[in-house]
Design a protein around this nucleic acid. Structure first.
Lengths: 292, 292
DNA sequence: GAAAGCGATACCAAAAGCGTATCGAACTAT
DNA sequence: ATAGTTCGATACGCTTTTGGTATCGCTTTC
């Protein structure tokens, strides 16, 4: 079977006439006779009954016409979709993330991306930094989000959100806490740090920032992620420092104080293969860049 | 676009290798290169990234592969279905009927037909005998069911059910009615006849039968169809004679007495075009014939 | 009974397809 | 480092397929 034969058959079926079908297809009549007959021979079914006035569908021909119209429609659709895919309008974008970026920065970005690319499917994969590099290498993901990427040859790191910080303290301790700057809060609370692994990490950065401000806080706990840290904070174990985007969410038992701007490396970054020409990636990158 | 190109593309996509795909398709490798390139040129999209190890799908290629697999599946399905249609296993059978045959004879027949041809759609059309002939002529229906068809050239009439008759009397008149034969009932009731139109018809036949038994009943009413006749009978307007198949149904307020077998022309018949070679019709006819 | 309309057929030229042989680039292994 | 291997791409000749023109045979119409 052949798409040409199908096209010819549909034309003849619709015109009920070989000659008219030929004119519609801008060819002469004999090729139509031949292709239709070939199609019928291959199927072993008479699709058209030749009459003195033209041709009419046999009952199997009616069935075949319906089916074959769907085939043509799907073929056209496939051609349209593959072009749309090249423009980055459809397809599947695989995203790796690590840590707190999933609480706000990534969702916000994806929501914006979705506005201009509503038909793109998105896959999210929680992966450590090391895993992200490997996943990028084998093409499992297109881009990774996180903090503190080191530069590697062949890979690009770009800032996504120039993050500010916030201090999270247990709400149970009243609200008359704030007297001076947010840094003064650490006079009242030991600090909860996270994550434990993946150095250099957010915990190291916080220590560094506090040190610069002359603060050497007691360490109340070290947790694996923001969520655990905030849970401990809500139990009045101590205070913790989180990205401002995380503070935008409602966490029960927690009150956030924005931290005065400091020199820091906390911004959310993305990592991708320089050689990746995927239109979807390029489209997402332009969304990221238009954000800042 | 061409089904061959699609076949080649799927093979290469699945093998991730032009050469292996060629072997799988039992052709040499250069034609594959050429066809794939032609496909890509026509679509204006690079579907495969040629690497040193073979080939891998580009993101648009992934999208295209999914779509194009559906096309192939549908094409195969269309080929299967058209063959099934020729065997009379699928398709649409249009049926005309008139009068009381719809109450039992036709449903029973179609139920049996459905057992062996579960995927055949059936259309039912209430048409007078005259309309049936016209509908057959223009191909609107394949077969008509009714009684008292006259023979016409080019059309065949066949018996479907060698029908016996039953007398319907109002249930309100107790059950000690039956003394002699069922014909004796007409000593107690005037007769309700139907239908009014379409002579020769069922009413004529009943009159004839009664006459042969020496009965000349008073005519209580003439109605358009069985349903009306039985409704009147249930109101004790009179008794009426109906086909035995109709008596199998439960009609409120009616008691049926089988009528002793007599020579009659009441059987349900079907009418079809002798030249109609539709496999569906032939299949239905063989169901009909195996019935008797 | 002639004319017109339809699909089928015959024949030729053009196009497209496939196969063999070969190339060039990239990876492997010694 | 270099020869061998493994890819896909290319060149060329041959075969198959396709489409066009002319024509046939049949049916319908006037």
């Amino acid at each position: 079977m052949d798409l040409r034969q199908i096209r010819y058959f549909i034309a003849v079926a619709e015109e009920s006439n070989f000659g008219l079908a030929a004119r519609r297809l801008n060819i002469s009549q004999p090729p139509i006779t031949r292709q239709i007959r070939k199609l019928e021979e291959e199927l072993g079914v008479t699709l058209l009954k030749r009459t003195s006035k033209g041709a009419e569908l046999t009952p199997p021909g009616v069935v075949f016409l319906e089916d074959v119209r769907r085939v043509m429609a799907q073929t056209t659709r496939a051609a349209e979709r593959v072009k749309a895919a090249q423009k980055g309008e459809i397809g599947r974008l695989e995203i790796g993330y690590f840590g707190s970026v999933i609480y706000s920065a990534v969702p916000q970005l994806l929501m914006k991306f979705r506005e201009s690319n509503p038909d793109v499917e998105v896959g999210l994969h929680r992966l450590s930094k090391k895993e992200q590099v490997y996943a990028l290498k084998i093409g499992q993901i297109h881009i990774g989000f996180g903090r503190y990427y080191q530069k590697e040859p062949g890979y690009a790191v770009e800032s996504v959100v120039p993050e500010t910080l916030a201090v999270a303290v247990p709400i149970s301790h009243g609200k008359n806490l704030k007297t001076g700057t947010s840094f003064d809060l650490f006079k009242n609370f030991p600090v909860i740090l996270f994550p434990k692994s993946g150095r250099p990490n957010f915990a190291d950065e916080i220590i560094k920032i506090l040190k610069e401000k002359g603060i050497e806080p007691a360490i109340a706990a070290e947790t694996e992620d923001v969520r655990s840290a905030l849970t401990l904070a809500s139990l009045a174990v101590g205070a913790t420092v989180v990205p401002a985007t995380v503070a935008e969410l409602n966490w029960p038992g927690i009150k956030f104080f924005p931290l005065e701007p400091v020199q820091n490396n906390c911004e959310v970054c993305c990592l991708y293969r320089r050689s990746d020409t995927s239109p979807l990636l390029r489209s997402l990158l332009s969304t990221i860049r238009s954000n800042s």
